[in-house]
């Protein structure tokens, strides 16, 4: 396969921007569908990018979602500046959330974001520096070997 054959997408995500939240993931989904990628894979990418997008909106000071689509896989990078995650192991536990009450009332903060992202990915990595940044990397294979 030709490694040069790829599509790169980048979206800026703003803190507390609930009005536009979900637009990046909706756009990514639309593009994957247009490329004729299997519905099951599109759904995984949609969930992973949506959760990543909402995490940036809710928890960070702002960041970006970068997506690289190749013939074999979709890579998703969610990068933000913000308070970071002090205990990643704890943050990965289902049901653990630091979202404030007013956010929970909107149906977020179920403590399912990161676990959902991991479940949808074939490769998953998260790194964070407290009081600086968080970076999540996810790879979803289009044609599983």
């Amino acid at each position: 396969m030709n490694e040069k054959n790829f599509i790169k997408l980048e979206y800026e995500i703003l803190q507390n921007d609930f009005t536009r939240a979900g637009e990046a993931s909706s756009n990514i989904k639309k593009i994957l569908k247009q490329l004729g990628i299997e519905a099951k894979i599109v759904r995984k990418v949609a969930i992973a990018t949506y959760e990543a997008e909402m995490n940036i909106v809710i928890h960070s000071y702002g960041g970006m979602i970068k997506v690289i689509i190749t013939e074999q896989y979709v890579d998703i990078y969610a990068i933000d500046k913000g308070p970071g995650i002090k205990d990643i192991e704890l943050a990965m536990k289902e049901g653990y959330s630091t979202a404030p009450n007013h956010i929970r009332e909107l149906g977020f903060g179920a403590g399912m974001g990161l676990p959902n992202m991991k479940r949808c990915s074939d490769e998953f990595n998260i790194e964070s520096i407290p009081n600086e940044k968080t970076e999540v990397y996810m790879r979803i294979y289009i044609n599983k070997i």
């Binding site: 009005t19 979900g22 909706s26 909107l106």
Partner: peptide, 12 residues
């Protein structure tokens, strides 16, 4: 839930 984000969820 009735706020804007339910539309993003439904679409996705």
């Amino acid at each position: 839930q009735t706020h804007l984000n339910i539309i993003a969820v439904a679409t996705l």
